[in-house]
Every structure is written in structure tokens, then in C-alpha cells.
Design a protein around this nucleic acid. Sequence first.
DNA 1: ATCCCGCCATACTGGGCAGTATTGAGCGTT
DNA 2: AACGCTCAATACTGCCCAGTATGGCGGGAT
Lengths: 208, 208
Amino acid sequence: MAGCYGGMVANLTSAKPDELALAAFELFSTRGIAGVNMDAIAAGAGVTKGSLYWHYASKKEIILAACNLYYRAWRRQILEATESSDRPAEKLEAAVAFSVRSCLLDDANRVFTTEIVAMSLYDSEVRASWAGFLDETERFFLGLTHRAVGAGELRCDDVDRAVDLMLAAMEGIKQIALFRPQACLPENEQRTCRRLMSLLGERVSALA
Amino acid sequence: MAGCYGGMVANLTSAKPDELALAAFELFSTRGIAGVNMDAIAAGAGVTKGSLYWHYASKKEIILAACNLYYRAWRRQILEATESSDRPAEKLEAAVAFSVRSCLLDDANRVFTTEIVAMSLYDSEVRASWAGFLDETERFFLGLTHRAVGAGELRCDDVDRAVDLMLAAMEGIKQIALFRPQACLPENEQRTCRRLMSLLGERVSALA
DNA sequence: ATCCCGCCATACTGGGCAGTATTGAGCGTT
DNA sequence: AACGCTCAATACTGCCCAGTATGGCGGGAT
């Protein structure tokens, strides 16, 4: 077991593994996982392969660490995006807007997730990791949607199915945007958000 | 220029390149593009690398040939699936049903398309090839949907947008099905079809 | 018969890359 | 001051694999 720091240090001070994973993420997001070798990751982080292999035992470990970094960033950003609103339906709209923005406008996001999905085809650990993230995403949107419906701000018969369909549409839009750059134009962002929101049900106009 | 058959033979009789591309497709669909080397493709087709390289100059040529094979199969199958119906709305439903079935139940389809999408990130030729197929798919569904609306069998305000959203949802469902095997169960097939059809508009009940 | 050519097989090369072996520098401990 | 531990750098190995070189075989044309 390399890189365990003696076992007792709770990994709070040492950001080195995160630095390495971040360098890996940035390279993966631009040149793809297969297009990046361990020397490139090390160089990107300003070290050499020797120390890289001290922190991570294999390339797959770095890939999984980069995934975890991505998940953490997502959690932080989507909380930031939604915390400013107080009404549930507004939070939901903010969450959809954030997701659309990161789907359509963030190339790194698109590249990295596409790579991870492809890798999940053959690597069960990566697949399990990504499946966990999908579950988390779904729980998040389910929670927001149920709250919006419960607060009477949204009308939706089958929340679970609606959320699933909306998330599927989002993934599909992200994928198709690869081939239709014009779909990524900012002027289409609002319309895409409205379309996706309409999948979640009808907004009840605020007449309280 | 290898494999040009002297230039005048119209490639009607010789199915060998197709055989090779088919073997490649089958291997790609099970072990991934990166997981299949040229020797494996040759062995799968019952030849050796020497003759494989006589027909195709590089691995990418075989990949593109496998794509074209996939497109041809799709054309044939979706025409078969829709020709039995005569009313436009029924054709549309049949096309959606076929797509859902090949998305959810056909592992090879899922694996191959995921691989191609990932490869499109870095290879412009592959991306162009797949983009052409996406365009074709969209045109097909646009045609069917417009005809159904024109025949008064479907009510839809913005057909173009609706078709785009439906196709995106289909791609997303395909991708997510990788991580949610339970979504692929046959008993969910009908419901998925109905959900997707609802994205295209409201079916007008036949009271002619 | 022989010559050409489409087609196929065998053997090989060269490069890229994951992973390893080994050494060393800084530093706290005793 | 000698030791051990963490972390880092260099050099190397071994494998996989795309692509190549080259030789052979069968059949059609003359």
C-alpha cells in the first residue's frame, strides 16, 4: 500500500495527491485518457513518474481519483448554484440551468465524462464509480423536484419517471452537442433549460 | 492505393471487405475498439494481418468501414420496422419502438456507439462520419413526425425542437442504461416508448 | 508454358508506454 | 551523528501493437 501516510494522518494537510489528480483531470479533459501517459501526468503536475507512482499505484487509481475530484467539484458547484434561491422550484430551475451550462458550454466536462462512460464499458470499478455519481445526481434532482411538488409550485404526476427522463435528455444533449456545435450557443441555453424543465412538470404560477 | 480492384470493378461481387468490416464490428462491439488489435480482427475474419492490410490501409479505415456497415444495417432495419404500418403516426411509433429496442436491448449497439462517440472526441473523420449518421437519423424522424402532424394524427407545436429533444432523450437513455441494467428490462420498454412519443406531441385519437 | 497480378501468409521492426528498480535528498527522532 | 521515513528523480525493462517487408500461390490472359 503506497501513499498511506503512515495510516493515521487524516489526509487533511497533504494536498499533493489532489494536485496530481487535478493535473491528470486537466490532461484527460483535453487529450483523453488514452492520449495521456503517466509521464505527461507527472510533467503536468511538475513532478516525475517516480513520485507519481509513490502516490498512486497505477493509472487506474489516478483515473478514479480524477473522478472523485470531478464529483467533489460538481457537489460544490451545484450547491453554490442552488443556495441563492429559497423557493424549491427556483432551486430546481437553478440546478437545471447549472447542469445545462456545464453540459453545453464546458468542453472539459463533456470530454471527461464521455471518456469515463466509454471506459465504464470494460472496467467495472470505473463503472461503479460513475454509477454512484449518477445515483447521487438523481437523488439530488429527485429531492428538489419532490420538494417543489410538495410546496405546490410544480405539478407532476410521476416525479421519479420525470426526473429520469429529464436526466436522460440532459445526457443526450451533452452527447449530441459534440456533433452539433451550434447547439452550444448561449442563445439556446435558456430555451434548452425551459424544455428540460417542462419535462419535470408544469410550473404552478405563484399566486400566493 | 491498395484494394482498388483495378478501378473498374464496381465492387458488386466482392464481399470480402464487408466480411472484414463485419468481423471488426463484432469484435469492436464486444471488446471495444482499443481492446481489439489488427491480428484479432484478421483472426475473426479467418485471415491474417497481411490480407487485412491489403484491403484496408490502416486501423482507422476499418473502423470507418465498420461504421458504414452499422449505418447500412440501421437503414435496413428501420425501414423494415416502419414499412408494415401505413398511417404516419403508426410508422413513427414503430420507428421509436425499434430505436428503443436497439438502444435498450442490444448490447452490441450500445458498446459500439459509445466507442465511436468517444473516438469522435479526437478524430475528426470519425466525428464527421457519426455526425452524418445523426443527421440522417434526425431527418428520418423529422420526416415521419412532419407527416404525422400533417395528416392530423399528431399535435405538435414545434416539430423540429420536439424531435431534437426526443432523440437526445433516446441517446441519454441508451447511455444511462449502461449503468442501470434494470432499465433495460423488457417490461419497461413499452413505457419508455410512450414517454418518448409524448415528447413528440399529443396523439390525436383516430375518429375519422 | 510463362508471366502477371490479385490475394494471402509469415516474420519482423520500431515506438510508445505502464510499471519497476534503484538511488538520493530532506528531515525529524533518539 | 547515525538512522529511518517520506517523497522525488533517473534509468531501465518488457510488452503490446500498428504497420511493413517479403515471399508464395492460384488463376486468367497471351
